[in-house]
Design a protein around this nucleic acid. Structure first.
Lengths: 204, 204, 204, 204
DNA sequence: TATGAATGAGCGTTCATTCAT
DNA sequence: GATGAATGAACGCTCATTCAT
């Protein structure tokens, strides 16, 4: 049911994603993309208006998917009444799933975060949307668990962002930049879980 | 006592830093830089061999300075025997000083981290050097305080990186991206200090 | 049967040859070439990697042709046993054919010898290859006719080069620099033949 | 009695000659010249209006000297009545002196002939003036010795140019391009003398 | 739909020349 | 006279985009 031209478009998107990931936006030439996709130079412009548009199109669509999947990962209900072991287990699972998700989109995340971010306003805002979404989820959990009741809205945000940064950097360094085994991933998630637990639930 | 040509070089560096920060490496044209510096196109090449070289020269030299200053900030001795209040105070001060340092180099850090990173291998490695230095310092403190004694080397590294990420992201988001008042900065440092304290010393 | 792009390439080669001949390598701008060829600036780089490469490509290919044709001109067998009239006739014909060949490649030879030589190592070596080829042919004839039997190898070479210089300069001055009638060419070849005959066969 | 500024001018001329010889006109930068001369960039323009003008000035003045010296070399009277041995000896000496003269101006001749010729009209005309002078001398000798009495003016010229080419190429190849010992030079002059003798006096 | 030759604006860089000191 | 920092026109080359086929 995939139309012939859909196939060509997919070839272009795949090639573009690969090369953008390898070399970044500016060092990627449209000619590189079409060469790897195996189509003619002109064909590119049947499917994308500009070089910029294929770039934003890639990160846009991936981002939408990832936001959705992250929402699903966090959708599982947790409540302050749960025993700590249960909460820890769920925290672990959630973080694991998140990191696995990033791992599965390694090259696109790499492109978006490492090469793409802030090369255009648009690219930046896409990455930001993803961050803000995750940040919102974290803050909601803060409120649900009434952590740091003395904090005002701004302090809440800072705290949430601290967790986000913690997650983000470990994810980038260990999950995005290299190929990981399951075992390694588990180990990383273990440490990260403990850190986040300590930061939040594990202290009076 | 500044020679005339040093002045021109400084004008170029200043202009370049500003425009690189605003637009990133690729969108910055040499012609933009010289225009803002108020010199002729050719003058640029009296002081810098290429456009790339002014870029790396800026981040290189700033980075060296910052690494040195961070080392100084952390040089103050702390020991596990100190009372917790003293440790907390020092932790707070250290983080404050770090963030203030970054704030004072706002635009250059912005350029390096947001625009520069991974546009060239060299730019990337410079930023990395800075991160690794801080990471090393954190790990040394981990050992000194015998935190997480059950961790192996890799887990130590992950934990240190978690702290680094926490610091880094809050710093980027609040200190680099915008102009902050002292009050706001204090508030942020307060939250971050507490988070790190919780993660490390504040739990059994 | 000539593909469209071959045609463009030919237009560029023709224009380049003309302008290089007129102004030399350095005074010829790529923009001159494309203007005369009636194509856009970028089109040039579809067919040639650099300005230098079109230059060497022109002289290289012409040179190869000319070496081959000179070899053919001299291929006809002559022997010391032939009567002097026959030898003289053949000498005349050979020289005539050589000069006619150069005349037919006038502008390219001009470019190569007058403008091109020693502007690059490569251009120089191409011209040299042609000279050395001719020199080798002359020396072979020396040996066949056992001229100057008292000469050693070096003296042979000098003598051959003397003949080559004689031929070369008359050729350059009369054949390359101007448009010649058949009659003028015959007259020149007549004199040159006699000179060479005198130098070699015509003396005890 | 050499004024201070004359010295500077000489340093510039010497440096320019050297570098022009090594790299040719276009590859020589004014900055190269002043660097080797050990003066400042601006100083150059106190002594020469343009880069082109130092070039033509060098070849002009050297050429004038060489023309004069060649005239002197050929000034010695020869006449058809002299015995052949005497004539041969004088021919030998004349050619020897000529080649030695060129040898002594090796680098300047190299620059003029190999790099300079025909990069500008002016440079070309200087070299030509030298050639034409020698050509005129040769033709005068032709007439004096009534060689080839059946030749018309044009044929005379061709014959003279043939000799000139013979001399010129051997001179360029052996004398200009490399450093020669006296012995080698003698050997070359020996062959060339014989060739020219054969071409002219040595045949009925 | 697909091609790929053609386009041309725009970039980084060079270097002969000028001029304030 | 001497300096050398400053100039700016001009070049070679790139590459996103167009368009006739």
């Amino acid at each position: 049911m995939v139309k012939d031209n859909e196939l060509t478009k997919q070839k272009l998107l795949k090639a573009a994603l690969e090369i953008f990931s390898e070399k970044g936006y500016y060092e990627t030439k449209v000619s590189d993309i079409v060469k790897r996709a195996g189509v003619a130079q002109g064909t590119f412009y049947l499917y994308f208006q500009t070089k910029e548009s294929i770039f934003t199109s890639i990160i846009q669509s991936t981002n939408d998917q990832m936001i959705e999947q992250i929402d699903q990962i966090f959708a599982e209900q947790v409540s302050p009444q749960m025993p700590k072991e249960e909460l820890t287990r769920r925290l672990y699972e959630t973080i694991y799933n998140c990191m696995a998700l990033y791992r599965d989109h390694r090259s696109i995340v790499y492109m978006m975060r490492i090469h793409g971010a802030s090369q255009f306003a648009e690219a930046e805002s896409v990455a930001k949307a993803c961050d803000e979404n995750l940040l919102g989820i974290i803050m909601k959990l803060f409120r649900k668990f009434q952590l740091f009741p003395e904090y005002d809205q701004f302090q809440y945000e800072v705290a949430a962002r601290a967790i986000h940064g913690l997650l983000n950097e470990t994810c980038m360094q260990y999950v995005i930049v290299q190929e990981l085994t399951e075992e390694e991933l588990s180990k990383i998630v273990g440490v990260v879980t403990q850190m986040i637990y300590n930061m939040t639930l594990g202290c009076e």
